[in-house]
Design a protein around this nucleic acid. Structure first.
Lengths: 149, 149
DNA sequence: TTTCATGTAACTTATGATGTTTCTTAAATT
DNA sequence: AATTTAAGAAACATCATAAGTTACATGAAA
């Protein structure tokens, strides 16, 4: 089943952005992610809407962090990306009147809700500055390389 | 993102099967699920391989439960369906050497593992007989109807 | 020996995410 | 003012893959 790695990739980008002097263009970010600028804009749009990044048009423009990394949690970015559910598991909806289907779906859904609550709680506990801790500063310039990271 | 409702649907089917006198053909199950027999065989094959159901060819053949419902948990069927991960969230793998990617992926993965453990644990605690409890017996014959359930 | 039903392989379709093209808008440089 | 740079956005194309379908083989009962 298809995986959505946007959370992982965006966190990666945000931390690199924090180490960058100025704004990062969609093009540069796209190269870093081996994708293209439009996809980057599409994804970053959600983060901008929630206030985590800003975008500036024109010369010298691009994307910048709108707040320090310690104000941004994994949960924040997860929510900003706007995915409805974290699970590949879905419920059947063919026989909503059938008590067996109801019982099965309730049992599954109860578990999904509990597991998702735990996941979101944990995501909320981790801020991006913690992830960036202990990573040497000399890594910063490599982001500026074309293929680099 | 696409959802996999096979678990929900198969549990539904298994409980109905338990209330049936004889074996259920792939065709009948397919009608119940608004799908076709080959898809049913494909899905049920995993359950047979793990010993939860048996299949018999030819006249009067079909699918039968190989054990009582109280021996089968949600986890059993989930595992038998053989899906690798329960999450839509995936990790990036573009820069496995990048310490930032590593830190991001470890943080996400730690949470996923914890949440998945809880989910699987809960699935293991629920057996199908519990789901079938309190459901009136007169429902049974309706499974035999063409569109019914 | 005919019918019924599963087993399996190969192929087709449907869906949704991702990628691409094209054009518009806006800001800084010349 | 004209040019360049870069985001915004709409429309369309591609791709991956789960689900659906067809066709045929196998095997068991009537």
């Amino acid at each position: 089943m298809r995986k959505d790695s946007r959370l992982s990739r965006m966190l990666h980008v945000l931390i690199h952005m924090d180490r960058l002097g100025g704004p990062a263009t969609s093009e540069r970010i796209a190269k870093m992610l081996s994708t293209n600028p439009v996809v980057v804009r599409r994804t970053m749009a959600g983060l901008r809407q929630q206030g985590y990044v800003t975008s500036v048009k024109g010369h010298g423009g691009g994307w910048s962090l709108a707040m320090p990394l310690n104000k941004i949690s994994l949960l924040d970015i997860h929510n900003a990306l706007g995915e409805s559910s974290v699970f590949t598991i879905g419920l059947s909806d063919e026989y909503t009147h059938c008590p067996i289907e109801q019982a099965v779906n309730k049992a599954i859904n109860d578990v999904l809700i509990e597991a998702e609550s735990l996941l979101l709680e944990r995501f909320g506990e981790v801020t991006l500055d913690v992830l960036a801790e202990g990573i040497a500063d000399f890594l910063s310039p490599s982001f500026t390389k074309d293929k680099g990271c």
